[in-house]
Design a protein around this nucleic acid. Structure first.
Lengths: 215, 215
DNA sequence: AGCGGCGACTGATGTTGATCAGCCAAAGGC
DNA sequence: GCCTTTGGCTGATCAACATCAGTCGCCGCT
């Protein structure tokens, strides 16, 4: 499959809401986020993408981007042409199953964020979110049970969790003071992983470590 | 593909959170909902399914159900065996693309619900949700711009929108009193479709009427 | 006829998290 | 050296929505 390596700088949109006939990308290094903007200027971040994640798959399949993607840090990606991707499915059906699996995993994460925002209060929500991120990062060797480096600002967390930046700050303080987790100077530390897991009701089955090809 | 026709009664779960090696279903008649239960008994409904929708696709691909599915009315479904589905992909790669498209559309809807709950206030949220449902129903001939019959209770709406049942009631009253929409006796009436659309900021591009095979 | 259950509906009270308004430290531009 | 920007942090006030505690009408049961 034809893959072109490209780099993008932080802050400049990679995919823009409403664009059509978009390429897809695989994120090689750096962090990005996918989000939607509403009429009134409010922003909802749907998910953060970390190295190894697929970017813009939905834009390709639906022919038009229903969301934007912005690099949070400078990033490197491999570009995958839409036609190449769809063509490869006919030649390698197993690839189609694998991509379908990846899409399902993405959807499961979005569902979990929906539950976060709909039914967990701010502190649980934050804890659950940072635990999920940790679990995903540890799959690519970027986190341990102790913690991970994390380039997110409190504003980004607010837009992802449906909170105000002010409240994010208070919630982080609360989590720090109760000895559950510390987020400071770009580093997340799990001060008491088990109690934190219990507090957030975090159950990582939906991240499905197994992958599409086992069984 | 082997398809077995089955019926289920309202209220008895079709798929249960944590089950593995589940079959998938295509909903032939009736309504269902997919939801997650939290430790504390709170429930978040992720989406409602209407005739023509795929049920439990994610459970098949991830090998284990991360959510439950409950029929809201008595329903009829066609059962599709997991092995048949995955086998068919290798014989008919186009089918894989079609299913991938369907999965992307599902994900786009979940994303829209995330935006609903994260960044729209209760009345906008309700309006947007009922408009989306109307748009989906009209694709299968079950709704017009005037309205549609809708078996949902206020409790179900509350669990879907992340509100309390009490507040759902108040919001519905408000929408009725401002002449936007009326939900009464199992029927949703759009009293002023254009103003309602404007009010909710509803833009149905993500429902992608085109389908996977055009272009 | 009487009872129990369910869904719609309402007023009073309480809490969560938004908003406003501001401070401080670090980093970069000129 | 000064000015501006950015991100983290805080107290005071306020609105949205939850919770509690009911009422009412309808239906099916015995």
């Amino acid at each position: 499959m034809h893959k072109r390596r490209r780099t993008f700088v932080a802050g400049r949109d990679l995919v823009h809401q409403g664009q059509s006939d978009q390429a897809a990308y695989i994120l090689a290094s750096g962090w990005a986020c996918s989000y939607k903007i509403l009429r009134d200027g409010e922003r909802q971040i749907v998910d953060f993408q970390i190295p190894g994640d697929f970017l813009g798959l939905r834009s390709v399949l639906l022919h038009t981007a229903d969301h934007s993607i912005e690099p949070i840090t400078d990033i490197e990606v491999c570009e995958v042409q839409a036609s190449d991707l769809l063509g490869a499915f006919t030649r390698t059906p197993r690839l189609a199953t694998a991509v379908l699996w990846a899409a399902s995993r993405d959807e499961a994460m979005v569902v979990e964020h929906l539950v976060d925002i709909g039914r967990r209060h701010a502190a649980e929500r934050m804890a659950h979110f940072l635990l999920e991120l940790g679990a995903r990062l540890s799959l690519v060797g970027l986190a341990t049970k102790a913690g991970y480096t994390c380039p997110l600002t409190q504003y980004l967390l607010a837009d992802a969790l449906g909170l105000s930046a002010v409240h994010v700050n208070r919630v982080l303080r609360q989590l720090r003071e109760t000895g559950l987790l510390t987020f400071r100077d770009g580093y997340v530390t799990f001060d008491d992983y088990d109690r934190l897991r219990e507090f957030a009701g975090f159950d990582p089955v939906y991240l499905d470590h197994a992958g599409p090809l086992l069984r």
